[in-house]
Amino acid sequence: MSNSEKYLKVFVDTLEIRSEEAEGLKYNSIANWDSVGHMNLVAALEDAFDIMMDTDDIIDFSSFEKGKEILASNYSIEF
């Protein structure tokens, strides 16, 4: 599974969305991506990519695209 597929799967599984709903998805735009969902999403990403995200990155993680950008720039995850 590529990193992009892995990243998408985390969103789909954690937020209980369809894969085509992930692009453009923003924090707090759906009920499941509230603050609790956000922490679950972070935990699932940390497990999937074997990383531990910094608090500042967790706060900045505001959308599907932004999360990808953070993982690529701060955690050397290649997409």
């Binding site: 935990a43 940390e46 531990m52 608090t55």
Partner: peptide
């Protein structure tokens, strides 16, 4: 506490 919660929460 925030860091420990990453493991304990799971």
């Amino acid at each position: 506490i925030q860091l420990a919660n990453k493991l304990m929460g799971r």
